[in-house]
Computed example of a mutant assay.
Amino acid sequence: MTPTRPAPARGRPRSTTSHQAVLQAVAHLIDVEQLGFEQLTIEGIAAQAGVGKQTIYRWWPDKAAIVMEAIQAGKLALDIGEVPDTGDLTADLRMWMRQARQRVFTEKNMALARSLIVALVASGVTVEEYVPGGSIQEGSQLAQRLESEERAGRLREGIDVEAAAFALLDPVVMKMIAGQVPEPNWFDALVDVIVDGVRR
């Protein structure tokens, strides 16, 4: 039987200040205090944020949901940064992906990614259920860079920008979960395949 997770209560507006405090608290505990996912507790997050546990449970079902939203909101150090826009999509994405290799492929981040997957599987829910808006890549720097290329008329007509973003990053996520750090040439080859697929 698939385990169920408690649904956030309805009817009470979310305090923007408290909401941001919780996300900042998770970022502090992971990035500054260097806590692993297993060491995170709702009690610890609440204490760091200066809110009550019930406030957190009213908005998030568990700690995995909070971490997922913190990642999406760019609060954690998993954010790679802005995608360059020199007019050369291939060169820009190659540079951006090489930055990912240096900044994202750390032991801490790979352990965090594996722990999140375990938490998602154990809870019986999907990433889309945990992430507001349903897509981590929607509105991301990568999606914006591809949209800019599309507006310039350099992509095939009708291309699905979000699908292209996922096609580029999903293999990277899988490498992180597997604990593998690809060589720079692997990133270059991945970029070449995606760009060749979306370009006119």
Rank of each mutant, 00 (worst) to 15 (best):
P3N: 03
P3R: 09
T4N: 07
A7G: 08
P8N: 04
R12C: 06
R14W: 10
T16A: 13
T16N: 08
T17H: 11
S18I: 07
H19Y: 15
Q20R: 10
A21M: 02
A21Y: 05
A21V: 02
A21H: 10
L23E: 00
Q24W: 07
A25K: 07
A25Q: 08
V26D: 03
V26M: 12
V26F: 03
V26I: 11
H28K: 12
I30K: 06
I30A: 01
V32N: 13
Q34G: 00
Q34A: 09
L35R: 11
G36H: 08
E38W: 09
L40T: 01
T41A: 04
I42W: 06
E43D: 14
E43Y: 11
A46L: 06
G50T: 04
V51M: 07
T55R: 10
Y57F: 13
W59F: 07
W59P: 01
P61C: 12
P61V: 05
K63V: 04
A64F: 12
A64I: 08
V67Y: 14
M68G: 05
K75W: 12
K75S: 08
L76D: 01
A77V: 05
L78N: 07
V83S: 07
G87F: 10
L89W: 06
L89F: 04
L89Y: 04
D92G: 02
W96E: 02
R98T: 11
Q99F: 04
A100Y: 02
Q102Y: 05
R103N: 11
K108T: 08
K108C: 01
N109Q: 14
M110W: 04
A111C: 03
A113R: 14
R114L: 10
R114V: 06
S115P: 02
A119T: 00
A122E: 07
E129R: 11
V131D: 06
G133L: 02
G133A: 04
G134R: 08
I136F: 14
Q137C: 07
G139P: 02
Q141R: 04
L142K: 04
Q144C: 10
S148K: 15
S148G: 14
E150V: 06
L155F: 13
R156P: 00
E157L: 12
G158T: 09
I159H: 11
D160M: 13
V161W: 13
A164E: 09
A165C: 15
L168E: 02
V173H: 13
I177T: 09
V181P: 01
N185Q: 14
N185P: 00
F187L: 13
A189I: 05
A189R: 15
V195T: 09
D196K: 15
G197Q: 12
R199L: 07
R200C: 11
